[in-house]
């Protein structure tokens, strides 16, 4: 009596470039005629909250999702939510917050074996983007962006809040990476391997690149 059953709902996150879905190592011809491919694209989404009229109506417990384009199933975020839940916004963090760092070694998606933890920098790598871009001046035109760090002065955790379109039962979240790559000065070595100001700036750009679509 009075109880609501939970249902499984899936929110898909689709990383794309110029609206083309990114697949691992899949060649992309950019609008400017350059060649591009993503060898790796992994990131943490955490602290997922559903809102209705500005009020939190569902907060996921132990909310940490490691998205990895090499494991397409990880792009489908699964939530067990009340069947009658109505929401008009979804919020999440891109990365792992400082409170979670303070908990010590964790399992599941947070297990340090996932390759998303810096041994010598002390913290999770929030976003890992690696690939090939013909504009990149590095050896083999390869780039590596490992964006992370949770301590001042360069905390990289970013919050995202997206309005859910009306009548959208399974929203689709697109992550459009073209604005991010457009910000990079490819005439210099663009690689990032440690917490720094640029990592903080790039993390913010990526967080602003999520868009939500009705399905």
């Amino acid at each position: 009596m009075g109880q609501t059953t939970d249902i499984q709902t899936v929110i898909r996150v689709l990383p794309c470039f110029e609206q083309k879905v990114i697949v691992p190592n899949g060649p992309i011809r950019t609008a400017s005629g350059d060649s591009l491919a993503f060898h790796a694209l992994r990131m943490y989404l955490s602290n997922v909250v559903f809102y209705k009229n500005g009020m939190a109506v569902f907060t996921e417990k132990d909310s940490h999702h490691l998205l990895d384009i090499e494991e397409p199933g990880t792009l489908d975020l699964q939530f067990s939510i009340p069947a009658n839940l109505i929401y008009d916004e979804i919020a999440f963090d891109v990365g792992i917050d400082s409170l979670t760092h303070a908990l010590g070694a964790m399992g599941g998606d947070l297990d340090p074996t996932k390759g998303m933890f810096w041994g010598w920098q002390g913290g999770y790598i929030n976003i890992k983007i690696e690939g090939f871009y013909s504009k990149c001046i590095t050896r083999k035109h390869e780039f590596q962006f490992h964006l992370g760090g949770y301590l001042p002065p360069f905390p990289t955790l970013q919050s995202v809040r997206l309005a859910v379109p009306l009548n959208s039962k399974t929203p689709l979240i697109m992550l459009e990476l073209s604005p991010f790559l457009a910000q990079i000065d490819w005439s210099h070595d663009p690689n990032i391997m440690a917490p720094c100001l640029v990592a903080k700036v790039f993390s913010k750009i990526i967080a602003q690149s999520f868009q939500i679509h009705a399905q």
């Binding site: 070694a105 933890f117 002390g122």
Partner: peptide, 8 residues
């Protein structure tokens, strides 16, 4: 101080 938790 590169590491901030003993576990890691």
């Amino acid at each position: 101080g590169a590491v901030q938790h003993l576990d890691f």
